[in-house]
């Protein structure tokens, strides 16, 4: 059976959820072989094996953390040459897409980014994308080389599928460009204690109607009652009310949760581009004409300063 490479996104061996989703998709195409770069391979291999990785190709070197992107491309290229895969799957993120693109070029392969589904097809993987601010759904194929595909978070379920997950060392030789861009310093983001925005099952967002940084506490309380991530519209971020790392929309994060709750967000195209593929959409807005109401499964026309606290209180009391 053909092998499918899956690039592992992890923090010191703690595998992030989108990688496990990729293993689900990889099993549709062949036998998943995970590529783990940096520390923590043994710890990661246990989880990767539980989710279908037949083996884990691992390499660790200071270059992976000290220089941008290219050392990881060198390693994935070595993995592709060692395995001769039927496809290569990489989680969609700023870095993931850059790694995938350079890898594709080196392998003489086409690349498709931001997949929301991948299925086996007669002529190779069929990739579904959501385009033009999610107004269209396309199905595409890579027609040259080994298909390199980046997949958005929440595009597939995480499924247990026990496999060997044996760690094998991957020999990597760094090329001339590997040390081109130095990471001089790195400051880890402070954790909010809430789920990662792109991975969360529920996202609660606030927009212009929240009317001030101090009022985002209302949005956070609602999010916490549901175990949700907090998002913000571009208007709220540009106003300085909430960090850019939480922005949902075309120039921020693209989210696809089970439930999206938009509070005081009109629903401009910029915002819709980042949340329109959410399964269930709920909105609270005082303007009955707001375009967000065209998308909703349930909408409340009203003052969010009344509706949101009441909703939070009701959820907390139901949880008892």
């Amino acid at each position: 059976m053909a092998e499918v490479l899956v690039y592992v996104d992890h923090v010191d061996g703690a595998v992030r959820k989108p990688t496990l989703e990729l293993l689900t998709l990889a099993r549709r195409l062949g036998e998943p072989v995970a590529v783990h770069l940096g520390p923590g391979a043994e710890q990661a291999a246990k989880v990767l094996g539980e989710h279908g990785a037949v083996k884990v190709l691992a390499a660790d070197a200071p270059e992976f953390a000290d220089y941008l992107v290219v050392p990881k491309v060198d390693a994935l290229q070595a993995a592709a040459q060692a395995v001769d895969p039927a496809a290569i799957l990489v989680p969609t993120s700023g870095e993931g897409k850059e790694i995938a693109a350079r890898l594709a070029l080196r392998l003489g392969s086409g690349i498709i980014t931001d997949a929301v589904d991948v299925e086996a097809g007669a002529d190779g993987p069929v990739v579904t994308q959501s385009v033009f601010a999610a107004a269209f759904t396309t199905k595409s194929r890579v027609t040259k080389g080994v298909p390199v595909i980046t997949v958005k978070p929440n595009s597939a379920p995480v499924e247990p599928a026990p496999a060997a997950g044996a760690v094998e060392e991957l020999a990597v030789t760094f090329g001339e460009l590997a040390r081109g861009t130095k990471v001089v310093s790195r400051a880890a983001r402070e954790s909010s204690g809430r789920p990662e925005l792109t991975e969360a099952a529920i996202v609660v967002s606030g927009g212009r109607g929240v009317n001030g940084a101090e009022n985002f506490a209302l949005i956070e309380s609602l999010a916490d009652s549901l175990g949700a991530a907090v998002g913000a519209s571009r208007a709220a971020v540009d106003a300085g009310w909430y960090p850019h790392s939480n922005q949902v929309g075309q120039t921020g994060k693209s989210v696809s949760p089970q439930l999206y709750i938009a509070n005081g967000i009109s629903g401009a195209i910029q915002h819709r581009a980042g949340m329109q593929t959410s399964k269930t959409i709920v909105a609270v807005n005082k303007d009955p004409e707001a375009p967000i109401f065209d998308l909703v499964d349930y909408g409340v026309v009203g003052d969010l300063f009344q509706v949101v606290p009441q909703l939070t209180e009701e959820i907390n009391s139901r949880k008892g």
């Binding site: 700023g94 990471v183 001089v184 310093s185 790195r186 983001r189 990662e196 790392s245």
Partner: peptide, 8 residues
Amino acid sequence: GDAASEQL
């Protein structure tokens, strides 16, 4: 980035 801010 998602996890960290890097000076390059």
